[in-house]
């Protein structure tokens, strides 16, 4: 059989300058969204552990809603739907960051809850018996241990969210996939360009994995 199509490395590397323009956007949406999502996730995770039934219910409702709907629908809702309510446009970058933040927060809050609950009851009792208040016990004893245990799951969520940003080409934000699509529209090099797009995602996600593994290793020295 004749090979009809040859992978053209030249074309692949030629797409790089265009694709690289998408990287700052992909990174901004991913890490901007994840940073806010982490804060929100801690908040809702702690609410889900609260003794108050109402607060627990608020957390559960939030988690169910944002875990139970696709992130693509969420970003479309924010970008196209929300402006009709607030009466003004929302720029695509803000919409993307908001969608990643709200979506990842739902998953991160579950990671936080699981991490905190995994710390043995005796740790809390030891803190309280020394005279530390409940918040102090949480801050100095429970949280540092829980956070360390959460690192692998957080890394996982980070990777998922980074990949989720690829869907946001639909709202026209110039992230990696969008840059690729524009480039392909003029050059028709779909194979090489999407290959390079995939490679660039790999570079980002593997860098994150590597950084977190370092962090985890450093944290584990003492244990």
């Amino acid at each position: 059989m004749d090979v009809q199509f040859q992978f053209d490395w030249h074309a692949a590397f030629a797409s790089l300058p265009y694709l690289l323009e998408g990287i700052p956007w992909t990174l901004a949406i991913s890490f901007g969204g994840l940073a806010i999502g982490f804060v929100l996730g801690i908040l809702f995770g702690l609410l889900s552990l609260s003794p108050s039934r109402l607060l627990r219910w608020v957390a559960t409702a939030y988690i169910e809603i944002f875990r139970g709907t696709p992130v693509l629908v969420q970003v479309l809702f924010i970008f196209y739907g929300l402006p009709q309510i607030i009466g003004g446009p929302i720029d695509a970058l803000t919409a993307g960051i908001a969608a990643i933040a709200l979506n990842s927060a739902a998953y991160i809050s579950e990671i936080v809850r699981g991490g905190v609950q995994s710390i043995a009851r005796g740790q809390r009792e030891a803190g309280l018996s020394l005279g530390l208040s409940t918040p102090q016990t949480f801050r100095y004893i429970i949280w540092p241990q829980a956070l360390r245990r959460m690192i692998p799951a957080l890394g996982n969520q980070g990777i998922v969210s980074i990949k989720d940003t690829s869907l946001f080409s639909v709202i026209g934000v110039g992230e990696l996939v969008r840059q690729g699509q524009i480039y392909i529209a003029t050059t028709f090099n779909a194979l090489e360009t999407y290959f390079m797009v995939a490679m660039l995602y790999l570079v980002i996600t593997m860098s994150l994995s590597f950084a977190l593994r370092m962090l985890e290793r450093r944290g584990l020295v003492g244990q």
């Binding site: 043995a120 005796g122 740790q123 009792e125 030891a126 803190g127 018996s129 020394l130 005279g131 004893i141 540092p144 241990q145 360390r148 003492g222 244990q223």
Partner: peptide, 14 residues
């Protein structure tokens, strides 16, 4: 004012 020592030690591992 009251100290407590547990069967499982409960030292802070971190």
């Amino acid at each position: 004012e009251v100290g407590m020592v547990f069967q499982q030690f409960n030292l802070f591992p971190h």
